[in-house]
Design a binder for these strands. Structure first.
Lengths: 139, 139
DNA sequence: TATAGTGTGTATATAGATATAAACAGTATA
DNA sequence: TATACTGTTTATATCTATATACACACTATA
């Protein structure tokens, strides 16, 4: 199974951290149910064209935080996580991301009206893109 | 003059890059008009409690991109930048920031309605905070 | 002219991120 | 039982980010 992970080359954020955050999002969002097996560190490193040390680093952090479990010889699996913890991770991550974006806009001297307009423009362009099922989510 | 720069300790983004982006935002947003003198690399490093090498790195990148000019013995000043270029930087940075936040939300399996709700909540809490002058900007 | 500021360059050091490679140990399956 | 997968550990290397320190050269001002 291939994970829908995209690494940004222009971001100054470490590669392992981008992977970690995206997998966490998929888990918290429910797209990776408990028990799902993840690609091995070697398979993922090939898919992303990076070192196994880097994918291993991401998996180690996720395991340390309780999102996944790894077993030598068997593989890596999504852990069983309390619904309340998942919800907390989701809400916290999304709130923080939007808050940070708004802060960036304010820093660029955007007014709240302007920020709302840009936001609606992005939402509108998402809706146009199709590729959404009925609940408005990205496939 | 002290710059309104805030470094995030939890961000994995390099310190020099955070400084660079925030100064760029202030310039593009018009809060730092052309000719304004910026703190020296030593003063800024003391204010932010980081190394002069780090502040110098941020200033070097900004100079390379044409946002500031530095003169040995005199100091560092905001460069004269075409209004159209400023606008482009603003629009691009803000659009990208909001788009990235929306992408993070979608990755967490948020629906567009949920994203809109979080966004409105943050906007509402900004309006409540006061500290805004009449044009809705942060002071 | 001397002083205090400014930026610039160099030296040295540490820590983190990333890479390749190899070997080891556990698990599952043919 | 052998093979192919899995994770784990170690070794070595390079690059980037950040730090302290010092010296040099430029500019402005008292």
């Amino acid at each position: 199974m291939e994970l829908p992970i995209r690494l940004s080359k222009e971001s100054r954020e470490p590669i392992y951290h981008q992977i970690e955050e995206q997998i966490k999002a998929l888990i918290a969002g429910g797209q990776l149910p408990a028990g799902t097996s993840l690609p091995s560190i070697r398979v993922l490193s090939k898919e992303l064209e990076i070192s196994v040390i880097t994918t291993r680093r991401a998996y180690q952090n996720l395991e340390y935080q309780g999102f996944i479990r790894t077993t030598q010889g068997k593989g890596t699996f999504v852990a069983e996580i309390e619904a309340s913890k998942k919800e907390e991770v989701k809400v916290s991550a999304v709130y923080h991301a939007i808050e940070k974006a708004v802060e960036t806009a304010l820093r660029h001297d955007y007014t709240i009206e302007q920020i709302e307009a840009v936001f609606q423009e992005i939402i509108a362009s998402l809706k146009e893109k199709g590729g959404h099922d009925n609940d408005g989510k990205v496939d």
